[in-house]
């Protein structure tokens, strides 16, 4: 395992990571800027600088760490930091703790350690292009159904799909077609009344969530974003709107 860990880290250890691990003054100015610190009665273990000690340790030990150790890394990088970057705003060296936490999450993912929900979502992105495993047919059908429902309320309401040359490509969180289609209906109403020139796309790219980013799975992250850009290019829209 140590070899795999180093093989993963080596090409990814940029100059900034090395510099940050080196120059952190351990001054503690970042402590009370982290909401995990303040929400846990100023627990010293929640100091941002302390949370990235794992990266330094793993490098020093040349990757020779066991499963238990990685489990402890997991508990910290997933449950003690949400990568909000606030601490960086107060660090005199602007050390980007969140970026290092993200690298550690990516390292764990490469070793098969990640929250179950995220792993499932990543599988779905890869297979269906959205986190909820909605098929293209179901998606288009849901949009059409929303249109029918709303047309009863607002005469002449249309929800455009794949409308070439529309001004804006509108994207949603994949939970909306699954659980909250009423959200899509409300939006359709607003767009209709406002006379907005928008369109949905029928093929993958309509889900604007990017949960793979939270595991540091940059390959899938990239695929998701590229899907949306591809649709935008095909439909020749000027803007992409995301709901989140």
């Amino acid at each position: 395992m140590s070899q795999e860990i180093m093989e993963f880290l080596k090409p990814r250890m940029g100059a900034r990571f090395r510099m940050w691990l080196n120059i952190c003054a351990h001054c503690g100015l970042c402590a009370n800027t982290c909401h995990y610190y303040t929400a846990n009665d100023n627990d010293p273990k929640m100091i941002p600088s302390y949370k990235v000690r794992f990266l330094k340790e793993i490098l020093r030990k040349k990757g020779k760490v066991d499963k238990d150790y990685l489990q402890r890394v997991y508990d910290t990088v997933y449950y003690e930091c949400n990568m909000c970057r606030r601490c960086t705003l107060y660090c005199p060296f602007a050390i980007d703790i969140a970026l290092m936490i993200s690298l550690l999450r990516a390292l764990l993912f490469s070793q098969g350690i990640a929250p179950e929900g995220l792993v499932k979502a990543i599988e779905n992105y890869k297979e269906f292009g959205n986190q909820m495993a909605v098929t293209d047919e179901d998606w288009v059908e849901t949009v059409k159904w929303c249109e029918e429902e709303m047309a009863e309320e607002l005469e002449g309401l249309k929800i455009p799909i794949d409308k070439k040359g529309a001004k804006m490509l509108y994207t949603v969180n994949a939970r909306e077609p699954m659980f909250y289609p009423q959200d899509m209906m409300e939006v359709a109403k607003i767009f209709h009344v406002a006379g907005e020139d928008y369109t949905y796309c029928s093929k993958p790219g309509w889900d604007d969530t990017n949960l793979s980013m939270f595991c540091g799975d940059l390959k899938t992250s990239r695929m998701i974003v590229e899907n949306t850009f591809k649709r935008a290019d095909e439909l020749e829209v000027e803007q992409v709107a995301i709901t989140e």
């Binding site: 900034r16 120059i23 960086t88 602007a94």
Partner: peptide, 20 residues
């Protein structure tokens, strides 16, 4: 050592300054 921060300070702040 971390005292190298006297020079790396400029690079670290600079890099994050661009990013942020």
């Amino acid at each position: 050592t971390k005292l190298s921060h006297y020079i790396l300070f400029f690079f670290s702040r600079g890099a994050s300054g661009v990013e942020f």
